[in-house]
């Protein structure tokens, strides 16, 4: 019998999973299993919801460290997608979910899992058009689709991302000045692969100031791995 959490239990499950993913990124070795982390049994609603909220980031330790994705974990992700299908409307939400789900499919493919035909996935979306927006709007949109940031970014936008570095950097500085740490952490993900000079001091700050927020810590841990290839 599936467990049914009371309303308001998803966010704590997301934090729990984000914290475990961050630890898995920092630790050496490859013993991490999603199925061991999720609260309750593998059919736990809160656990599946957390996997759906984090999207491709649930694959971060496997993709960033090149670890094999266990079949049980792949099945959990598929169950999460089916339990929380992408919305059919409004268009803005469909686009958002499409970008996130395309990133999830890319992450699964890297892990050797074919997600073709999975029930609940949104039609694939692209971030290309977001990178043509004015910088404030672009940064806000990139925060929203941070699950599609490197290491899950589509290859087609890599060159576009490089050309948008100044604008994304402006967005990062703006987020830091607003003390919006979650947004700042998301934006470091988009800047990290180029090893931008700005990224390293921003990560130093975020690792301290955002230490009590597991999602900020997860984003900074991913960005740090992408920037330096090592753990903080």
């Amino acid at each position: 019998m599936p467990t049914t959490p009371a309303p308001g239990t998803v966010a704590p499950a997301v934090h729990l999973l984000a914290g475990a993913l961050r630890r898995a990124l920092l630790e050496e070795g490859g013993g991490f299993r999603l199925a061991r982390v999720l609260p309750g049994r593998e059919d736990s609603c809160a656990g599946l919801a957390a996997v759906r909220v984090l999207g491709a980031d649930a694959l971060a330790p496997f993709v960033v460290k090149g670890l094999a994705l266990p079949a049980q974990d792949a099945a959990l992700i598929r169950a999460a997608v089916r339990a929380h299908p992408a919305p059919q409307e409004p268009e803005r939400q469909v686009l958002l979910w499409g970008i996130r789900d395309a990133a999830l499919v890319r992450g699964l493919a890297v892990s050797g899992v074919d997600a073709t035909g999975w029930e609940g996935l949104a039609p694939a979306g692209s971030t290309a058009h977001l990178l043509r927006l004015p910088w404030v709007a672009m940064a806000a949109e990139l925060v929203r689709v941070a699950g599609a940031a490197p290491p899950f970014a589509e290859e087609a936008v890599h060159a576009q991302l490089a050309r948008s570095h100044l604008d994304i950097s402006r967005g990062l500085v703006r987020a830091l000045l607003r003390r919006d740490l979650p947004s700042a952490a998301c934006l470091t993900r988009w800047l990290a692969p180029a090893g931008e000079q700005l990224t390293t001091p921003a990560l130093d700050y975020l690792e301290i100031a955002g230490a009590d927020d597991p999602r900020v810590s997860l984003d900074t841990a991913i960005a740090r791995r992408l920037t330096t290839g090592t753990s903080p």
Binding site: R78, L108, D114
Partner: peptide, 25 residues
């Protein structure tokens, strides 16, 4: 890639689905 079968079905509540949509959005 390998094909994957989903694990046991879990049926989330409307409130939980709403929370997921809010967090994703």
């Amino acid at each position: 890639g390998r094909n994957v079968h989903a694990v046991a079905l879990a049926e989330p509540t409307a409130a939980e689905r709403g929370e997921v949509y809010a967090l994703i959005g």
